[in-house]
Design a protein around this nucleic acid. Sequence first.
DNA 1: TGCCCATTATAGCTTAATCGTATAGTCGCC
DNA 2: GGCGACTATACGATTAAGCTATAATGGGCA
Lengths: 291, 291
Amino acid sequence: MRLRQLECFRALMLHGTMTRAAELLGMSQPGISTMIAGLEHETGLTLFLRRGGRLQPTPEAKLFYVEAARALEAAENASRVAAEIRSGRRGHLAVAAYPSISINLLPRLLSQFARNRPDLQIKIITRNSATVRELMSTQQFDLAVAELPLDYPTSHMEVFSYECLCMLPPAHPLAKLKQITPKDLDGVPFVTLFRGDPIYQQLASAFSEAGARWNVVAETEFFSTACQLVAQGRGVGIVDPVVSKPFTEGLTIRAFKPRIQYQIAILSPTHEALSQVAQDFAGVLRRALRG
Amino acid sequence: MRLRQLECFRALMLHGTMTRAAELLGMSQPGISTMIAGLEHETGLTLFLRRGGRLQPTPEAKLFYVEAARALEAAENASRVAAEIRSGRRGHLAVAAYPSISINLLPRLLSQFARNRPDLQIKIITRNSATVRELMSTQQFDLAVAELPLDYPTSHMEVFSYECLCMLPPAHPLAKLKQITPKDLDGVPFVTLFRGDPIYQQLASAFSEAGARWNVVAETEFFSTACQLVAQGRGVGIVDPVVSKPFTEGLTIRAFKPRIQYQIAILSPTHEALSQVAQDFAGVLRRALRG
DNA sequence: TGCCCATTATAGCTTAATCGTATAGTCGCC
DNA sequence: GGCGACTATACGATTAAGCTATAATGGGCA
């Protein structure tokens, strides 16, 4: 049984004559005739009585029509869904990410991405980087963004390295400098990430090597929190140039030497294939993270 | 999009490799390969990644699979339903009939007919012959059986004519005769159909022409009622030889002269086509009514 | 590294299905 | 009886389906 036969059958049932059905399907009347003859032969049903050169649907045709129409609709639906999948209107995109990025940048990018993909189901899960990595290995997400280093570097990773910038409260005297060093910050109240963070360690080394006193007045878990404290004048701090950019509105940003490195990575599943939507969004994300 | 493509796709999704899918569908591996390539081209989806000579379904394939399987099942269901319709296992058979036949003969025939058509929906409506004819003209029934004559003889009719027989209570003295005439029944208590019935009129003429006294002691609407009265010894009567046969168990049946004619007809719709089941049952009915 | 094995892809061919044009047949209707 | 509307058949061209043979790919293993 071929779909084309069912299509002809439906058109014929709906429009009564082969001639009209043919017009509607954009084919010739003999085409319909042979299609219907084939369908009748294959099903073993007499679907139409030929009375006086006209067709009259039999009761069998009416019974069969119900199922034929259902099957056709299912096939047409499959076609439509294929088009939706192709255009990214249907599907899902689950992204796991560490907090700083999932607060602002990621949802902004995702909602923009989803704007012309109305039926795309979106999921953002925020966890710390270690958990994000775990989630990726259990294959529950299409993409993830985590901070490096990871205990078990795994998955397909695309690494982005940033040099952190120094942020100063508005109208801070050091704003006159183009570039700030630990020496400039000797004893200056400083807001930093927690002790366990690579940023903390790098800063500690930088200050000690420069022989400057690192006056830590606050430790935070996220850059965004640190930014808020700096904005309130609690002290100066450092921040990455891309992910945290949305939080530094109104702050003075200066280069910092020596280089404090901040690395994050886009993780994708190892064994699973990446969906087209996910690939597309990975592209968006990549462009955004490149700055 | 062709059903065969979906079939190959499903087999491939379920069995992982083209080679196995091909075995399962009884075709060659290159056949599957080209089918899948065609499906991918038509849908515009990359359904499988070719990784190291192996196939790995993409997330798109998994999404599309749901719809593809649904469409396939609908098509397979349509095929199955066609087979059911052809074998008469699916469908309906609505028969309208006048009382005498719908009490015994018709349900007996119908239930036997339906024995190997388990899902056939059966309907029997019992009305007097005039109403039966009305119902047929409104096309609500596949077949009907009515007594003649009808006010407006219509529909397609197949007429059955019977010569009525004389029925005597058990151990009646007239049982010794091979054939009974009005003369034999001069003054004998007689059970007949109502005054309006053709049978009544024919009997009245027969008795008056023979110069015999017709001693009507009971009038009934149906042969079956008359039979019951005769069985109780209320009198003799006459009955048709086929439809009322089930009611004359234990009665003595003799030929009656002159001939009293009883006519019934199978009616079928004029404009509607007769379903195959209905045609088949009409055949059964025809054979039964021919005696 | 090089060979074997399992798998998929491509090429070339045959057969079947599809569909158009041309044409014949059927029937109602005026 | 001829016209009009419709369906069926014949025939040819194009396309799809499916086969066999064979190339290509890559993992596993000595």
